[in-house]
């Protein structure tokens, strides 16, 4: 316990913290430190265990695994480039769509377009999208979305088939329905965090913008959006992270086809969906390969998060002048 050199000072009621005060203080500090340590240990253990199980595959296939395009259980040839491509392509498409709509919804909910109570109701509804189980999204995609977009897909393919984007016909499951469902799935994350970012913009900033004689759109686009940018970027990074790791709905919708195509209507595959669909029947060598794939997915999410954090920091520095 700390000594008290002021003990001799006589006052009405000032005195040192009691022994139990110090004990509680120490105990709380230990608890939070312990919790933080457990999380770090858990992450380290997961990476270690994945690495350990993937090690035979890493030695066996080497870096060629990452650029190989074949996944052939018979010949024991494994490569995950199409899955890496599919993961990034579907997530970027979803980020683009979900980000656009998510930020738009956040603007709609926070910039006085709606009465305050109504906007809270609306926000709750948007957040409820996050509560829908992934498999339900998958079913909805198969039975509702795919038939719904098929006419549009056919028209786009017939009219603009020369564009690589519409280069193939929509046979059923494919990139477009997968990306659309993924966009809906990340929408609540992006919207909710962007709403918070906009709400954090101080009222005086809004006043300053309108005081300069901005119209509402000028105020939103030129002032509110840059001011909220670091929070919005955080929303996008989280949304992207969620899209990268999403499994069930994609396994049901993307077609699980080992190919690299720019076409929105071609079937593709993602790392998470590969893992989900291959594990149940995998032999020992394939399991090692799948562990390697899982490690690759982990690395991708980690890189995305680090890059996202870095971009956020850069934005904060640029707009707010803080380090």
């Amino acid at each position: 316990m700390a000594s008290n050199p002021f003990a001799h000072i006589v006052t009405q009621c000032s005195g040192p913290p009691s022994a139990s005060d110090y004990a509680i203080d120490r105990a709380l500090r230990m608890i939070v430190k312990g919790a933080a340590a457990v999380i770090l240990l858990l992450v380290a253990y997961i990476i270690f265990e994945l690495g350990r199980q993937a090690l035979p595959a890493m030695l066996n296939f080497g870096p060629g695994f990452l650029i190989g395009t074949e996944w052939n259980v018979q010949d024991q040839v494994f490569g995950i480039l199409p899955e890496i491509w599919g993961t990034l392509y579907s997530s970027l498409l979803a980020l683009f769509l979900g980000g656009l709509f998510g930020v738009a919804i956040a603007i709609f909910l926070t910039q006085d377009f709606l009465d305050h109570r109504l906007s809270n109701v609306f926000r709750t509804i948007v957040e409820m999208l996050a509560a829908i189980p992934s498999v339900v999204y998958g079913l909805w995609g198969i039975y509702v979305l795919i038939p719904l977009i098929r006419p549009a897909a056919e028209w786009l393919h017939d009219s603009f088939g020369w564009l690589p984007l519409f280069g193939t016909d929509l046979a059923g499951p494919g990139m477009a329905p997968a990306a659309l469902v993924l966009a809906v799935m990340i929408l609540p994350t992006v919207a909710a965090i962007s709403v918070d970012a906009f709400r954090r913009v101080p009222y005086k900033v809004k006043e300053a913008a309108y005081g300069m004689g901005t119209t509402r759109w000028e105020a939103i686009l030129k002032v509110m959006l840059p001011t909220a940018s670091s929070g919005i970027l955080a929303a996008l990074v989280l949304g992207f992270g969620r899209a990268l790791g999403e499994t069930m709905a994609l396994a049901m919708l993307i077609g699980n086809s080992n190919q690299i195509s720019l076409s929105l209507f071609a079937p593709a595959n993602t790392l998470a969906s590969l893992l989900a669909s291959s594990f149940p029947e995998a032999g020992p060598v394939e399991v090692q390969a799948l562990m390697f794939a899982a490690l690759a997915l982990l690395a991708i999410t980690l890189i995305v998060n680090v890059v996202g954090l870095w971009v956020m920091k850069a934005a904060t520095r640029k707009f707010e002048g803080k380090a």
Partner: peptide
Amino acid sequence: VLVRRYIGMVFQQPNPFSMSIYDNVAF
């Protein structure tokens, strides 16, 4: 909006925009 283009305002609390000094003045 039109009124505020002709009648400017300085507030009690400093409220610069999250942008460069130059861009603030040029806004």
